[in-house]
Computed example of a mutant assay.
Amino acid sequence: MRVGVPKEIKNHEYRVGLTPTSVAELVNHGHTVIMESNAGAGIDFLDEDYVAVGAQIVETAKEVFAESDMIVKVKEPQPEEIAMLEPRHTLYTYLHLAADKPQTEGLMKSGATCIAYETVTSPAGTLPLLKPMSEVAGRMSVQVGAHYLEKEQGGRGVLLGGVPGVNPGKVVIFGGGVAGVNAAMMATGQRADVTIYDINPDRLAELDLHFGSTIKTQYASKRAIERAVREAHLVIGAVLVPGAAAPKLVTREMLSTMKRGAVMVDIAIDQGGCFETSRATTHDDPVYEVDGVIHYCVANMPGAVARTSTFALNNATLPHAIQIANKGPIQAMKDDPHLANGLNVSDGKVRHKAVADTFDDIDYEPLF
């Protein structure tokens, strides 16, 4: 198979779909890899690094799409990339369609087979291709939250860990999944006062056993959420409903009760965000204020630590990429129902129920 990797064009996105090591693996399986020139330059992978392991280099994304059967990316295709997709293409990348109807409709119109990293499952029912970026985003959320709590950034002027004689900052984390756990790890490492909220009692028990006395856990009732945001210095939204839009846990009304200079970091913004006042931002312009509360809603957070993120992502995505290339997408999905769960769009139809259920006028039509 001819596997193409274009240069990412989303704002400040320096990650790349395949590292030279991943390219070498695909070449060793007999496949052709076509890289857009400088696709990996943002993280110091030069064209000669890719040529050394057998890749072909072309000058433009248009050439990559024209000469490839499968397109491997990191972020969702931008409109100019969607325009280059054809029914013969397999697109393998993050999509997050539930928060993006124009992209959904564009991919349907293209006729391409579109497999989303974020809905591929594992035998244990986890999301193994989403996990590495959730780990990165969870850890980053505390890092950026602490930064924007600084007074010169417009924050409340609170040090998360406090100092002797001064209370630590209060960190509230909504969602006890991978992102939430990683946020808690970083926040407790800074000696913050951390509480995780979730609606699954079994998960709360697991978190209690894992963290012991270093965090508190609470059931995420509406009243508990109201109280939590009123007292918090840093609120982290880390709620995930696979393939679907994130629930709006913090309402506009709740926001008005928060401390001036508090910070909200919405990790779920790729899926529409879990705060009513959330809107996607970029690394160029990452924050905005509502009622004196700072919102950080960057839709590609891990892109800020692009080298770490690229290696972590490739570790997870490469095995499936090899199977798709070896067998073709249809046979690969027939052989692996967990990969088949990653199919979001093909032949102009939406193939993932959670995505279709998000939109009133788009029907779900399973392929298998």
Rank of each mutant, 00 (worst) to 15 (best):
A66R: 09
Y219C: 02
A61H: 11
T358F: 02
I199Q: 05
V172T: 15
A316Y: 08
H233F: 04
M108I: 09
R191T: 02
N167V: 13
G272N: 05
A238F: 00
L209T: 14
L234R: 08
P329Q: 07
R351P: 01
L129S: 00
M185E: 11
Y288D: 00
Y296I: 11
K327G: 01
E81L: 12
G155T: 04
F65P: 06
H295S: 02
E289T: 07
I322S: 04
D347V: 02
H295V: 00
D44I: 06
M185P: 00
S110Q: 08
T195E: 05
G40F: 09
S22F: 02
H210Y: 15
P164I: 05
A187M: 10
I330C: 04
K349C: 03
H233M: 00
T251W: 01
A268P: 08
A304Q: 12
T317W: 08
M185G: 08
D198M: 09
R230K: 14
M133T: 08
K216I: 03
Y296F: 14
N167D: 15
C274A: 12
Q56W: 12
T282C: 05
P242E: 04
V120Y: 10
E152V: 14
H12K: 15
V136C: 12
D100W: 05
G272P: 05
D347E: 14
Y94R: 00
L204E: 07
